[in-house]
Design a binder for these strands. Structure first.
Lengths: 331, 331
DNA sequence: TTGTAGGCGTTATCAC
DNA sequence: GTGATAACGCCTACAA
């Protein structure tokens, strides 16, 4: 069934059918009615490709994220998709993996698809030399690029991110005020947000005249058993509290405490990040930073739509995080 | 930049450019070289829509799932996407929500997009009267439909699913052999797989001459606190073990045990489902059924590709589950 | 090995 | 209001 068939059956021209399909006002009620009936009877569906060809868009945006199996990104993708749906846009999902070369390939593959925008979930590595970054800047020449929880300067590049710096600054300060002096900082990557979190940690310590002990900054895989085992191997190290850049690592710290017989929060306070389901699953339940994924994603899509609508939008929007206090801390 | 521009710049016809783009063998090395150079210089990218128009496909399949924020589905989507990528296919993701009307809309929206196939993640409600089902059967007239963990008969409809019946049968039997007599069954929906799980539970009890006590079958939302609270409200009910159709509910049962001061597994054994990260996060760690999401998804995509390749594939493929034993049970 | 021309199904721009 | 008709950019016989 093509528009020609419908036109013939309805006794009108294809132009008229097209007008009916697209809800043009200048069609008489009578013909509109006839065409509608024929379309319904024949179960006609306009060909999306032809439509895309003519319009230059298929109302589709690309979402690239390293790994949707990660609960945080899954949530983000879910929110993004929901909001896009609300505007009548589709999304094509591409999981790139964390490797730079793979991310580059992901972007270049998606660029060939005439998408209306590219949304990157999860922070881009902050290494300014990275080939991905120059590629992204080039890509932005063709379509707008949005980073969710990442930062990149450039024309037609927009960033929406949680205020991870402030969030970690605040919680570090709370721990200090609660009397903690040896706060272990567990980080899992060199991403932009991981870096900002660490800066918040260091700044808060400095603000309270505490030295930053490099041994208290531990790089670690975001996995419960891996973190537990890493901590078990640090027998020389003493610490009275833990801030982790991901909930999984914080739970690993709880597991470590359980193995060592440390009481949480009395002997060890633990703070996680993302306020994921893990944080209410473990024992005791985990104090965690909620970085407002829903708001972040809604803001992103609203901004994108405003942009596509020709409006001007801020290059960078920062969203305040919330600290969710639970039983793994005593402040 | 269109194919015409490239042709002009390279001093050849568009047909030749097209041949180069599509890797046709009948082009002289020399012209191939020239055309390649021009394409590189101009940063030419073929228009995907025009391509789709001509070929009738854009190598894209639709994935519809109720909610990617659910870790189980997120994993499934991740695996599906990864496998599709391997075959050079893209996926467009649509989160439908659980409501029947919304699912129907999701399918009909996706049907208009000239996709090569539709993959439905998460079980379809088994009510044969449902409008979604007839709609799906109709949809299958246009493109192949795959259900991951669901069942539907019909032409051009294919199902790949875990053997949930057997998995629950087996674990129920293990509990019985371990001396448990009052096994609480926690279920969260009337989906096909939830139904099969319950059948496995009842069959195993029957096989051991145990009555099915209807009060021991509890419907419950898949949420840790909701499950805990539900159990706390069942004060009259006695049970010595719990089988949950989702890990979240099993963790809820653990939380309930903690509140009541019941020792796990001595006084209460708990079994979850999906072997999600929750199962190693809680305390004690959770015995859980692994339904082999990765294998399920790989099988799905391999089958799809075989089908698109013109081969015949089985209408239904059942994958055996694995029981992962941890500290919440003592068998 | 290469080029020409028609077709794919729309949308959009004209006339009428 | 409505109808021709030219894009849109590519693919693919068919010719040369």
């Amino acid at each position: 069934m093509t528009i020609y068939d419908i036109a013939k059956l309805a006794g009108v021209s294809i132009a008229t059918v097209s007008r009916v399909v697209n809800g043009s006002p200048k069609v008489s009620e009578k013909t509109k009615e006839t065409v509608r009936r024929v379309m319904a009877e024949t179960n006609y569906t306009p060909n999306a490709f032809a439509r895309g060809l003519g319009l230059g868009t298929m109302q589709t945006v690309g979402i690239v994220c390293p790994d949707v199996a990660d609960p945080y990104m899954a949530k983000a993708v879910s929110y993004l998709e929901k909001n896009l749906q609300g505007y009548g846009y589709d999304c094509i999902l591409y999981c790139s993996g964390y490797d730079d070369a793979d991310r580059e390939q992901a972007v270049s593959l998606l660029l060939k698809k005439q998408l209306d925008a590219l949304l990157l979930v999860g922070s881009i590595f902050s290494d300014e030399q990275s080939a991905v970054l120059t590629q992204l800047r080039e890509a932005a020449a063709r379509i707008p690029i949005f980073l969710i929880n990442g930062v990149l300067s450039g024309d037609n590049v927009y960033c929406v991110l949680g205020d991870d710096y402030q969030a970690v600054y605040d919680v570090t300060e709370e721990l200090v005020l609660a009397g903690k002096r040896r706060i272990l900082f567990l980080t899992n990557s060199s991403s932009y947000s991981a870096g900002r979190k660490q800066q918040g940690y260091e700044a808060a310590l400095a603000a309270h005249q505490l030295d930053v002990d490099a041994r208290l900054i531990l790089h670690c895989e975001n996995s419960i058993p891996a973190t537990r085992d890493l901590l078990l191997r640090q027998r020389g190290l003493t610490f009275d509290s833990v801030i982790a850049t991901e909930d999984g690592m914080a739970v690993g710290a709880l597991k470590y405490a359980a193995v060592c017989g440390l009481r949480v929060p009395d002997e060890l306070s633990v703070v996680g990040y993302n306020n994921s389901e893990l944080s209410i699953c473990c024992e005791p339940e985990l104090t965690s930073v909620d970085n407002r994924g829903e708001l972040l994603c809604r803001t992103t899509i609203d901004s994108l739509m405003a942009l596509l609508d020709g409006q001007t939008i801020p290059k960078q929007q920062v969203i305040k995080c919330h600290l969710i206090k639970r039983a793994s801390t005593d402040f």
